[in-house]
Simulated scan of single mutants.
Amino acid sequence: MNDEYYDSLNNKIQKKNEINFKENIEILKRIKENIKDSEKIINVVINEKTNTVVYLIGTIHVSQQSCEDIKTLLSIVEPDTIFIELSNERAPLLTSTEDQIISQLLKKPNINWFTTKLSDFYLSIHQNFYYYTTKISMNNKFLKNQIGNNVNNENNKPYIYGNEFRIGYQYSKLNKCSVLLGDRNFKSSWNRIFNYLDLKTILELGGYGVKTFFKIYNQPIDEIREEYYKSVNELIDASWKSDIWRRDLPMAVQRGLIDERDQFMASCIRDAPHSKRMVAIVGKGHIKGISNHINDKEEGFYIRSDLEGFQEPTLLSKYSYPILMPSLLLLPPTLSIYSFHRFIKPLSKPKFTLALLSTLSIELFSIKYLISNFENKLEKL
């Protein structure tokens, strides 16, 4: 733990004598001794509205090491309030049994190809991401990479995405401390993201998706796993101060998925009832933003109302997917048949139509074949 934590708390104690400075300095020393690279995953701030000392711990949602760090931090800090990066509609994730969650995560969701909303399509892609990361985590090598060779039988279960939140909740029940769920509604975030998208960004995302599809399609399974482990370990090693979380994300996604949620969660922490010490369990990429907004002067209720309020979908958000998808499917067969008609042999209207439908059928069959092979490959992860 570097000296800026001590300096920050020391500056606050001069203004807020109610805070037990020495006690929290001892806690910081124990954190440094017991949590490896603690300065990369923990930041300590003071909520000036209530004088609460807030220990922000950043997690990687697919990392068993994050779970171990949270257990250690909770035992050292002994908070009276735990903040969790979950919205109220996702609270069942905390109370369901591990077997119930795993059984749900291992049910393959369908990709919502036929929809009128771009957000519905991407949400189905997001659900598939949960599914496949759960399958990858069943490989013991992933767990061993993160917590060393001392892997017991319990840790050989599939890793539950976001299990660190459950650890915080279970601690609160055993130690009778308050729990605060303070994230924005999940669907609100995604709806707002897609309302911010412009046509250029939609096309870029589509191109990136196609590129990623064929890259994975042609990669050996072991290489896919290794790349996944490498990317996760890169996130684990990164500091919360890093901008790695924003890398390669379009501005619309940065705004809706990171910046607005930072403001939302910071306002929830700021408006929480007074407590002596709070541990806030959030994704590592949110620590920087929450720390910057924790003592904003704006009224938190109005901030949250604005950030979670209903947005009328833009025309692009409503109609880009049902227009672009058929257009992209029709373009190759139309161009090929028109080129044949124009430069090789003229076709009558019935023959042109029949050739177009036949070529479209072949294209759809080929796409279905590619997707089926792709999914079969991912199933082996």
Rank of each mutant, 00 (worst) to 15 (best):
Y5P: 00
R192H: 12
D69P: 05
I294D: 02
F194A: 03
Y169L: 00
L331Y: 06
V53A: 00
K345E: 14
V54E: 03
L235P: 01
K215E: 05
L181C: 09
N140D: 10
S137L: 02
Y132G: 03
E78M: 09
I42K: 06
Q64N: 10
K284E: 12
Q104K: 15
N376T: 03
K32Q: 15
S172G: 01
Y55G: 01
D120R: 01
N155L: 14
D7T: 02
K276Y: 06
H293F: 12
N155V: 12
Q100E: 15
E298Y: 06
D271Q: 02
L257V: 15
I167L: 07
Y319Q: 08
I125V: 03
R192P: 01
I125M: 06
I303N: 03
H286M: 05
L249I: 05
F374Y: 15
Y132A: 04
T134K: 05
Q65S: 15
Y5V: 08
Y369M: 10
I290Y: 11
Y5F: 08
Y122H: 07
K288F: 03
E260N: 02
S242W: 10
Y217C: 00
K211V: 05
L174T: 11
Q127S: 10
E18H: 03
Y5I: 12
A355R: 13
C177R: 10
R246Q: 11
N185R: 07
